[in-house]
């Protein structure tokens, strides 16, 4: 297998159709009234929100803008509203700063210098807001995680990844960019550098230590059972770098699997309750 960017090229019309059908079918099957999702103004959530609106109609999609003081970014908010306007879905904005402050002030071991732990509070607080809307209004939570960050474990466990469905999770970041272009997401959103915005100035590629164009090809190779040496050779990289990516992928599997217990009884939750996800 030759690892060139073209391996990531698929028929974007077909992908769009498949994702739209998946969303529509799941909403109908579950009897939910629509979809709620967190809207950051970034590529992934903009694309997911737009696809949701295309699938079930914008009047049934609610994008929640959940900014907070430290990472407040007017451009991101402008972008989120731009997508909402273009694809005709509803938005609501809630400043989560007061809620975050309560956590910071009431957790006895809170350490403000630990930005990862603090950032995770932000992602999990957003999850609480989103799920409240879902419960209250009978909506499904639509996740926006892509395959690159999911495979890297580059997300907050029980935070941004928490969702009922994750329609773009089988697409790498560079593929999401192409799909976004295909469905008409504004260029400025596609081009801006990815950031989880858990602290000021946080940039995904800087933190991951690799460009998505390279990371996606490495992950594609690993997905296709290629050996790290072979991937490294083809991409002109050091084998150690590919090994490091592979290790991170395998090391973070616990973040992608739910409900681990130890086997005691006849059929165990998580490991051998093998049931369809929904009844129908």
């Amino acid at each position: 297998m030759e690892l060139t960017p073209s391996v990531l090229d698929i028929d974007w019309s077909e992908v769009e159709t498949k994702i739209r059908r998946f969303i529509k079918d799941y909403v109908e099957q579950t009897g939910a009234k629509g979809i709620v999702l967190g809207l950051s103004g970034g590529l992934d959530s903009s694309t997911t929100a737009a696809l949701s609106a295309l699938a079930i109609g914008g009047d049934k999609v609610l994008g929640l803008l959940l900014p907070e003081q430290e990472t407040y970014n007017t451009q991101d908010i402008k972008h989120a509203k731009l997508v909402a306007e273009k694809f005709g879905f509803k938005t609501e904005m809630i400043d989560i700063t007061p809620a975050l402050k309560v956590f910071y002030n009431t957790i006895p071991v809170f350490e403000k210098a630990d930005k990862i732990c603090k950032g995770n509070i932000k992602a999990r607080t957003r999850m609480i807001y989103i799920y409240y809307y879902a419960n209250r209004l009978n909506l499904l939570v639509c996740g926006s995680s892509d395959k690159s960050e999911t495979m890297m474990g580059y997300f907050t466990k029980w935070g941004d990844v928490a969702a009922d469905i994750s329609p773009i999770m089988d697409l790498f970041k560079t593929q999401v960019r192409k799909l976004a272009q295909h469905i008409g997401i504004p260029k400025e959103i596609i081009k801006k550098p990815a950031s989880p915005a858990l602290w000021p100035g946080q940039l995904a590629e800087e933190e991951l230590g690799i460009k998505y164009e390279t990371l996606d090809l490495i992950l594609y190779g690993l997905e296709h059972f290629m050996k790290p040496e072979e991937i490294a050779k083809q991409l002109g990289l050091k084998t150690e770098l590919v090994e490091k990516i592979k290790h991170r992928w395998l090391y973070t599997e616990h973040k992608r699997r739910m409900l681990l217990t130890t086997k005691i009884e006849y059929r165990t939750v998580g490991t051998d309750f093998r049931l369809p996800r929904t009844l129908y």
Binding site: K18, R21, F22, D25, Y26, P276, R277, T278
Partner: peptide, 8 residues
């Protein structure tokens, strides 16, 4: 045809 557990 149809979708079952994410399989189309």
């Amino acid at each position: 045809v149809g979708i079952e557990d994410g399989l189309q």
